[in-house]
Simulated assay, not measured.
Amino acid sequence: MNSHPPIPSAPAAGAASVSVIIVSADSGPGLQDCVRRALALAQVHELLLIDNASADGVPEAIARAHEHEPKLSVIFNHANLGFGPAVNRAARRASGEHLLVLNPDCLLEPDTLVRLLAVLAEHPRAGLVGAVVCDAQGVPDPASYRRDPLLHRALNTLLKRGGEGVEIGGPMPTAAVEAEAVSGALILMPRRLFDFLGGFDERYFLHCEDLDLCRRVRDAGYRVVLAGDVRVLHGKGGSSRHRPVFVSWYKHRGMWRWFRTFDPAARKPPLAALVWLGIWAHFALKVPGQLWRRLAARAAARDAAP
């Protein structure tokens, strides 16, 4: 792009105005802790919880529990709009200078947002900042720090052959570093840049919209930065556990859309056809195992019931 939106210099972390956006979709009781921790942060100007037609009753319980909390707005969709479309809908209502898009299974520490804002302020032309998301044992998710999933990289990763892969590999950085892509479980952006880019591409329903946004931030002349010393607990999403095939379908669909949009290899029709076949063959191979694990989990839950 030839022109860039002006990004105001970030204010001191204590004076920052941040709108937190959380999308829920049968995310489970852990969502309550996620919301509680975010609301406790002084830098949070508002929290917009947007629900994609959950049936678990948790968003309603949160609305009742925080009915006198002026910073919280709960938005109920009557259908599952998808992750990106829901974020965009909430962002149109947001009024903070910065947006923090947060997964419902991420738990912020008291200093998380202060440190992320400091990284945004300290790095010239930083347009998007992510953190290292970790499981309960503190093991970082490789998706926290990765490259664009170009075809040759994806093949190197899949076939475990030498050469540059999608994952960076090795230990996670312990300081802020420039990245091609970070995990969409937690991203901090100036509101002006998010609006300038049109938010998330709504053609992605679930998965890969974060890769798309990181790429468009870089294509617009800004930097994607990983705050390597900021660790955030990221649990297993309720939607992924309860609807694994549904989630996997949209993940593979998102992979195909990203490839068609950004990978030069997609300009070669025979190669593009092979990639399409490979993506959907990979999906088909995963379905039996996903269904088996889901049935086994249901059986275990029944056996454990009193």
Rank of each mutant, 00 (worst) to 15 (best):
R267I: 05
R218Q: 14
E202S: 14
A15P: 00
V129E: 01
L206R: 08
R92I: 02
L193F: 03
G170D: 14
H98N: 08
F196M: 08
R243L: 15
K160V: 01
H282D: 11
H45Y: 13
V87G: 01
P142R: 07
I187D: 00
P264E: 04
K236M: 14
L48A: 07
L159Q: 15
D195G: 07
I187Y: 10
A272T: 12
C214G: 06
F262Y: 15
C214R: 06
H242W: 06
K286H: 12
D303F: 10
R161I: 02
T261V: 11
G82M: 03
A297M: 10
A175E: 14
H207Y: 12
D210E: 14
G84C: 02
L274F: 07
K268E: 13
F283S: 09
A266N: 03
A266K: 01
P29S: 14
E180C: 02
D212M: 03
V129G: 00
A94H: 08
I75A: 11
M1L: 06
E46G: 12
H68W: 07
Y222V: 02
A185G: 15
W292E: 10
G96K: 01
A143E: 08
Y204T: 12
V129I: 13
A185F: 15
P70C: 02
L151G: 01
R298E: 12
R223A: 05
L47S: 07
H123Q: 14
W249R: 11
P140I: 08
A185T: 13
V129A: 04
Y222Q: 14
H66V: 04
